[in-house]
Design a protein around this nucleic acid. Structure first.
Length: 731
DNA sequence: GAAAGGAGATTTTTT
DNA sequence: ATCTCCTTTC
């Protein structure tokens, strides 16, 4: 790729602090990779002395692959970010973890610590609240978790938090925070915030800091606008000796302030490095003029932004199409139709929305139009219940002190170890300061347990020992996992607990997990387990998105930040959704919503569709949201509007029809008035008839009894509906 | 100890 | 409407 002058300047600036102010689609990744290449090839800088951090695994991997290619390293051979021929290129968290792996022992942790995700943290907090006899209603664990996390991100220890306590709620937070940290340590576990804080703590030691300063003499930080204060401080410490720090800054794409990303870090940077070379990358190589100019006009309304203009030499392109649909179903249908009409490969299409809840409707219509699609985000792979279960097994085998994982699986599959038994164990655990495993070892000594419970627990302990033994003897982690799944009868358990469709989906996920584990084939089983657990805690779903197959991609705007596509749809652009209802009235938050709109718009390379619905079914009722204020900020010259009335007038929810046929309440009555009447001739239907349904498309009647029909659809199972009034037609 | 019923929430989530 | 988590009931 040919770099423009500005980009080349950035590439050449190596022994000096550098601030790259980049805009969407301005080729910053190309610039960064070229810069690294220049360092290694032309300046003889050892890759080992270069540190490159960013926020997502995906971005890190992409950059790594590009650099590998430029350095003529076969990227298929790169197995970890520790490849000696390449710089350390990873996420902030993966870098912090590598520091912790070396030095955490000085903080009274063991090297085999595990990482708790947010769900783990919340359940630990719940446990603490229960022990302290606080009502969860009064002190919601999630809220407390947020408070603690906020404190941690301001680098406040529990004791330092004291000075900010100004309410009885915060008193509780302080007490829970104290206990929470203690328990984490007991479990030899860190939460996501700890990863930063502990690293910060460790680097307070001058000799350790010096080691890292000498090791990483060149530092690059991508997405600097999303750093929080702790990240800023750590980077500052590391770079303070050689001052070869390059950061990439894009304030218009800062959409994570609610995760404590602090845009003021740019001011800090300018204060710390007044001599820094500042380079602005304003030329956009991605989108058409219409899209770029429209996005510019929108973002201009933010007071809190450097006034600069993104420009492009790309062609004019097509106008942005604004779609106003009568309701959310028609909106979804229109999107599906346009994708078909456009006739572009599916993979050229990206559908964006503000909230995850919006995806389902769109999915239904994509299914209906036989359009393959993939939803990215939402429920993450590693958040899936079956994966979490299996990971919990692996975690307790790795770190026997991990009580959260232990609790998760001690009765999964069901082993008749109930809540009461666990309570006794907890009491015992607290009184004698033992780990679960230590108690299990001498289960006979626990007096308050019933005989049956003791047997169950003893059996579980035997199982644990056996798994542990196999872990030592089996040659690979993958083989061990397969053995383990069989040994604990996990698949049988799933089969018993879930419907066939759910079972199949879960088995697929398990196979995928095994697949992931086979990447560790070349390491011995136990070290492989350690490495896997470290890495897996920091992995996200997005890492799985491949572009090999042809499908439409659906995701929230937040998730889309690193993507671009030819055709982009932004759905539900209404006041109340984008900007979100909770942000209206707060200037700063509203500006962040506007940046979201900007991010969404600039994902489009060629054609942008912005849609809204006059009426939408949300939270069990019909809502009317006005047109988003952001739409009005787009000048008319860039837009054309499609406005249409209901094409499918009988589009109502299945459950609505179902309610209607059973017991109409006053609420449903109101909806009846709005609905056109359907009166099918029952006599015309018979068993095995194929039906079309606006929501579920093709159905087959499997049973018919008067007006009540049982109808089968391959993915949805059996549904019963009143065929006289249901919105169905024979095909 | 497990199923059924009820209450509450439903913004975004790189790690 | 629907999902999740918690409590009640068998």
């Amino acid at each position: 790729m040919n770099l423009n002058e500005r980009q080349q300047e950035a590439v050449k600036c190596i022994e000096w602090p550098l601030l790259i102010i980049a805009w969407a689609g301005s080729g910053k990744t190309a610039t960064l990779t070229a810069r690294v290449e220049n360092m290694i090839k032309n300046h003889g800088i050892s890759p080992q002395n270069i540190l490159c951090v960013t926020f997502t695994n995906k971005a890190a991997r992409e950059m790594k692959e590009r650099i590998a290619k430029n350095l003529w390293i076969d990227s298929t051979q790169i197995r970890s970010f520790k490849d000696y021929r390449l710089p350390f290129m990873g996420t902030f968290h993966s870098f912090w973890v590598s520091v912790l792996k070396e030095y955490i022992e000085i903080l009274d942790y063991k090297k085999d610590f595990i990482i708790y995700d947010t769900a783990d943290s919340v359940s630990l907090i719940k446990q603490i609240l229960r022990e302290m006899k606080f009502e969860e209603k009064e002190f919601p664990p999630r809220k407390i978790q947020t408070y603690i996390s906020t404190a941690k991100n301001s680098l406040l220890t529990p004791s330092q938090y004291e000075q900010y306590v100004d309410s009885s709620f915060k008193e509780v937070v302080r007490d829970v925070y104290h206990k929470y940290q203690k328990k984490l340590q007991e479990n030899n576990a860190l939460d996501f915030d700890d990863i930063l804080i502990k690293t910060h703590n460790i680097l307070q030691k001058p000799e350790i800091l010096a080691t890292y300063q000498e090791r990483y003499t060149y530092i690059m930080v991508d997405e600097y606008q999303d750093t929080n204060i702790t990240q800023y401080e750590i980077i500052k410490m590391l770079a303070s000796k050689y001052r070869n720090l390059a950061v990439v800054w894009d304030d218009w794409q800062s959409i994570y302030s609610w995760r404590w990303a602090d845009m003021r870090n740019i001011l800090n940077f300018k204060k710390d490095y007044p001599e820094a070379l500042v380079i602005k990358l304003e030329q956009n190589y991605r989108s058409t003029k219409h899209i770029i100019n429209a996005a510019n006009e929108v973002i201009k309304n933010n007071k809190n932004a450097l006034s600069k203009t993104l420009w492009t030499e790309n062609c004019e392109g097509e106008c942005i199409t604004l779609i106003e649909a009568p309701d959310d179903r028609n909106e979804a249908k229109k999107i599906a139709e346009i994708i078909v009409e456009q006739g572009r490969p599916y993979s050229k299409n990206l559908v964006l929305y503000r909230t995850n809840g919006q995806s389902r409707q769109i999915e239904e219509y994509l299914i209906g139009a036989w359009i393959p699609y993939k939803v990215v985000g939402g429920l993450k792979f590693y958040d899936r219940m079956e994966i979490k279960d299996l990971l919990a097994y692996l975690k307790i085998l790795y770190n026997s002190q991990d009580s959260i994982s232990m609790k998760r699986i001690i009765n999964v599959p069901v082993r008749k170890i109930g809540a009461r038994s666990l309570e006794v164990l907890d009491e015992y655990k607290n009184n004698y300061d033992l780990s679960y495993l230590q108690i299990l070892e001498n289960i006979e000594d626990v007096e308050d347990l019933k005989w049956a419970a003791k047997i169950s627990l003893a059996n579980f302990y035997t199982l644990y020992r056996e798994l542990r033994k196999k872990l030592n003897s089996l040659p690979s982690l993958r083989e061990f996992a397969e053995y383990m799944i069989q040994k604990i009868w996990y698949k049988d358990y799933l089969k018993w607990e879930y419907s066939e469709a759910e079972y199949d989906a879960k088995i697929e996920n398990i196979d995928e997990l095994i697949n992931v584990l086979s990447a560790y084939e070349w390491i011995e089983t136990i070290p492989a387990l350690g490495q896997f657990i470290d890495e897996v805690s920091l992995l996200t779903d997005m890492d799985q998105l491949s572009e090999e197959n042809d499908f439409v991609t659906l995701m929230t705007i937040h998730t889309s930040k690193w993507l671009e596509r030819e055709n982009v749809f932004i759905a539900g652009v209404e006041d109340g959704i984008l900007p979100h209802i909770r942000t209206i009235g707060n200037q700063e938050e509203l500006e962040e919503e506007r940046r979201l709109m900007y991010v969404a718009m600039t994902r489009a390379k060629e054609k942008l569709y912005i849609s809204r619905a006059k009426e939408r079914f949300q939270f069990g009722e019909y809502m009317r949201n006005p047109k988003s204020r952001f739409i009005d900020e787009i000048p008319l010259v860039h837009t054309q509007e499609i406005w249409f009335t209901s094409e499918v007038s009988f589009f109502w929810d299945l459950n609505f029809w179902w309610n209607l046929s059973s017991s109409p309440s006053s609420e449903t009555f109101q909806k009846v008035i709005k609905t056109p009447k359907i009166d099918n001739d029952i006599a015309s239907f018979s068993i095995w008839d194929r039906l079309s349904h606006p929501k579920f498309w093709i159905w087959i009647i499997t049973d018919l009894n008067g007006e009540l029909a049982e109808i089968a659809f391959n993915n949805w199972g059996l549904k019963k509906m009143n065929i006289r009034i249901a919105p169905v037609k024979k095909v």
